[in-house]
């Protein structure tokens, strides 16, 4: 019973409080709401137009600027990289050409040295062989002379042994004839 009466009185209170049915249509509160709404809107407007919106606009334009700048810088760097690559290729080509030139030079130098050395060696060989030939000729001449002397001696001995008178002139003549023959 007690709870029933409390519920009933609560319901009555609520009914009394929301008398027009919708609190939205309680015109007694309108001046209050309109006043505080205008205060709120003006406060928000001042905050937005003085602080928030310029600041956010600044941030956005700054970001745009940074992005544009960075893109420009990136393009610059890219151009520099292309340039550097070209320079590198140029240097590489130059170095190759230089190396080829040095190789060719070295080759000609070596060739000249080689030719020189060959010529010198040839000359030495020629000189040596001429000397040898001369020595051989001398030896041969020496040998012939010895053969003649030995032949004469041998002939004189043989003639002597055979009991003849050794006629040196005749022997010389006979040996010379034989030697010629």
């Amino acid at each position: 019973m007690a709870t029933d009466t409390i519920a009933a009185s609560e319901a009555g209170y609520a009914a009394a409080e929301s008398a027009p049915g919708m609190p939205q249509l309680d015109f007694a509160t309108y001046p209050n709401q309109i006043f505080w709404l205008l205060v709120t809107l003006i406060a928000i407007y001042l905050v937005l137009s003085r602080v928030a919106l310029p600041r956010i606009a600044g941030i956005l334009s700054e970001r745009q600027w940074t992005i544009t700048n960075d893109i420009a810088a990136a393009e610059d760097l890219k151009a520099k990289a292309v340039e550097a690559e070209a320079a590198y290729n140029q240097a590489l080509a130059d170095a190759r050409a230089e190396a080829q030139r040095i190789v060719a030079e070295a080759k000609t130098e070596i060739q000249a040295d080689l030719d020189d050395a060959i010529a010198k060696a040839d000359a030495e060989i020629a000189a040596k062989s001429a000397e040898s030939e001369k020595a051989i000729a001398e030896i041969r001449a020496g040998a012939l002379e010895s053969i003649e002397a030995v032949a004469k001696d041998t002939a004189a001995e043989i003639v002597g042994l055979l009991g003849g008178q050794s006629d040196s002139a005749a022997i010389d003549k006979a040996v010379a004839d034989r030697m010629k023959g």
């Binding site: 509160t29 209050n32 006043f35 406060a43 928000i44 928030a52």
Partner: peptide
């Protein structure tokens, strides 16, 4: 009574919305 200047629950939540915007 609710006069035009009385701070009400509407005032409170409008003030909170200002704070949230800020």
């Amino acid at each position: 009574d609710i006069a035009w200047y009385t701070p009400t629950n509407a005032t409170l939540w409008m003030a909170l919305s200002i704070l949230a915007v800020v």
